[in-house]
Design a protein around this nucleic acid. Structure first.
Lengths: 142, 142
DNA sequence: CTAGGAGTTGAAGTGCACTTCAGGTCAAGC
DNA sequence: GCTTGACCTGAAGTGCACTTCAACTCCTAG
C-alpha cells in the first residue's frame, strides 16, 4: 500500500540511506521492491524488518549475527528452532551485560557522589563520605 | 609494595598486555614504573586506575573520553569540577542507554515467547498468542 | 527544455580500538 | 655458556561498521 522512499525509511528508523543500501548489499536486508525508475520502495513489512534490525543492533548484536537471523527469517517456518535458539542466546547475553552495566552505573553514581561532597566541602575531613567508600573496595580511584 | 608484571595485571583486569601498553602509549594510562631491566612494574594504585578504566570502557565510554578523564585525574584537585561534569554526562548517557536496552530486551523476550508457542503448537490458530502481539504494534516481524 | 534534486552503482576511504609483527634485550634455569 | 621465555620497541596490520566518492540516471518544476 504505502510505499516509502529510502530517505523516509531512514528518518523513520534512525538509519541513514547508505546504511540501508549497505545492509541490503550484504544480505542483512532482503532486496527491496523498485519503482519504474529503479528506486527502492519500502513496504510496511520492510519497515517492520528494519525496526527489528535496529532493535537487535542497539542491543549489541553484530552485523554477522543479524544477517544470519534475517536469512533464517527468509527461510520459512522450518528455521524457527534455529531462530529461537539464536534469539535466546542473544537475550541471555544482553541480560548479563545489562546486569553488569547496572552495577557499573552504580559505581559511577557513587563516584559522582564522592566528587560532589569534595566540591561542597574542599576540606577532606569535614564531610564524611556519604556512603561506605567503594573506591577502596573496588579499586576505584577518586 | 606489591608490584605486578604486565601479564599479572592483564589477568587481574581482563585486559591484554598489548592493550595496557597501547593505553599507556596514547596517554590514557600514566607511564608505569620500570624495574632495572626496563620492564613495567604496576603498583596497587595503577591497578585501581586500570580497574576504573575497565569500568568506563565497559559502559561504553570512548577511548578519547577516557583519556581526557584520566588526564584530568592526573591534573590535581583543581580538575575535580571538570571530572565530575564529564562523569555526570557519562552517567546520564549510560542511564538512558540502559533504559532503552531494557525495553529492547523486553521486546526480545516477548518475541522468544511467541516463537516458543509456535514451536509448541505448529497449527497457528490452536494456541492464542500468550500476550497482545507487540509484533504488529512495534513493527516487529515474527 | 533545462536545471535541480533525489536516487542509483561499485569502489575506495574512514574511524575506532586494538592486535600482530619483526627485531631486540635481559634474567634465570639447566 | 646457552637456551628459554618474558618483556621491550616502533611500525604495520586487522576487523568491524559504516561513510564517502565519482559518475551516472531519472523525474519534476520553472
Amino acid at each position: 500500500m504505502t510505499a516509502h522512499t529510502i530517505e523516509t525509511v531512514a528518518a523513520l528508523t534512525g538509519m541513514t540511506p547508505p546504511t540501508l543500501r549497505y545492509y541490503e548489499r550484504i544480505g542483512l536486508l532482503a532486496p527491496v521492491e523498485r519503482d519504474a525508475a529503479g528506486r527502492r520502495r519500502y513496504s510496511e513489512g520492510d519497515l517492520g524488518m528494519i525496526g527489528f534490525v535496529v532493535l537487535l543492533r542497539e542491543t549489541g548484536m553484530p552485523v554477522r549475527e543479524m544477517t544470519r537471523f534475517m536469512e533464517l527469517t527468509r527461510g520459512g517456518d522450518g528455521t524457527i528452532p534455529a531462530r529461537v535458539a539464536l534469539l535466546r542466546e542473544h537475550r541471555d547475553a544482553v541480560r548479563e551485560r545489562l546486569e553488569r552495566e547496572a552495577q557499573h552505573l552504580e559505581a559511577i553514581e557513587h563516584k559522582v557522589g564522592v566528587y560532589e561532597s569534595m566540591l561542597a566541602a574542599p576540606a577532606p575531613a569535614s564531610v564524611p563520605d556519604p556512603a561506605p567508600d567503594l573506591a577502596r573496595e573496588a579499586r576505584v580511584p577518586v
